[in-house]
Computed example of a mutant assay.
Amino acid sequence: MIAKQGCTEVNSFSKHWPHLFPQHGPGKKHNRLIKLEAWQREIVEAHPGRFVRGLMHSDGYRGTNRVRRHFNGSDHWYEYPRYLFVNESQDILELCEEALDLLDVAWRRSEPNTVSVARREAVERLDEFVGPKY
């Protein structure tokens, strides 16, 4: 692997990982239960911003939504920033929604597998926690 400045690669192999992270297991994650253990829930509730940051950096997107509306005989365009979090696991989507609620960030399901944050105040609030992907 090519080393990147400011990055450190860490590897660990142990038969005990499943005890520490019971959500990890064989098969597709959207086909198995993803539930936080009590000790994990405590951490997420204490640091929901960090949890959402990790979710957004793994399966999320922050971009600009461009919308075209036709009225008065012509096309009008407007755009706004938004976050999307896409995952096939309903359990993971619900964990994301719970953490957004803890941060008081307005969200909605724009698709069955997508959590959208698009209100100006909500995007600004989420920007405080997520930051750019590298």
Rank of each mutant, 00 (worst) to 15 (best):
P81F: 00
G73F: 01
S89F: 10
R41Q: 15
P18M: 01
E121M: 07
D75N: 10
L84K: 11
Y134W: 02
G60L: 06
T114P: 00
Y134G: 14
Q90L: 14
C7M: 11
K29T: 12
V52G: 03
W17D: 01
N65E: 14
W39G: 10
F21I: 06
Y80E: 14
E88T: 15
H19D: 15
H57E: 00
T114N: 05
I2C: 09
Y61V: 01
R41G: 11
L36T: 03
D127I: 01
M56R: 03
K133M: 07
S89P: 14
Y83V: 03
L55F: 02
E97L: 05
N87H: 13
S110F: 06
K28I: 02
W17S: 10
S58P: 02
Y80A: 12
L36R: 09
N31W: 10
E121H: 07
L93G: 12
Y61M: 05
V10D: 00
L126F: 00
A99T: 04
Y78D: 07
L102D: 13
L93I: 11
F85Y: 14
H70D: 10
M1K: 00
D101N: 13
D75T: 05
I34K: 03
I43C: 11
K4H: 10
C7D: 11
T8Y: 01
E37N: 11
E9H: 02
E121V: 00
K28E: 13
E37Y: 07
H19K: 15
K133I: 05
G49F: 03
D127P: 02
H70I: 11
L100V: 00
L100W: 00
V123D: 00
N113W: 08
N72K: 11
E37D: 13
R69Y: 04
R50V: 06
K28N: 09
Y80V: 02
F21L: 03
E98F: 06
H57F: 07
M56H: 04
L20W: 01
G60F: 06
Q40T: 05
E42L: 12
F13N: 12
R62N: 12
K28Y: 09
P18Q: 08
E121T: 08
E9G: 01
H30F: 14
C96E: 04
M56F: 10
D127F: 08
V130D: 01
D75C: 00
G73V: 08
Y134T: 15
E42V: 07
L93Y: 09
E45I: 03
R125W: 00
V10M: 04
D75Q: 03
R119M: 10
E88W: 11
H30T: 08
A122E: 02
M1W: 03
R125V: 05
S12T: 01
L84D: 09
R69T: 10
H19E: 15
Y134P: 15
N65L: 13
V44W: 04
M1D: 07
E97D: 06
P132I: 04
E128W: 04
L95M: 06
G49L: 00
R68C: 11
R125L: 00
D104H: 13
I43A: 15
M1E: 07
A99N: 04
K4P: 05
Y78G: 09
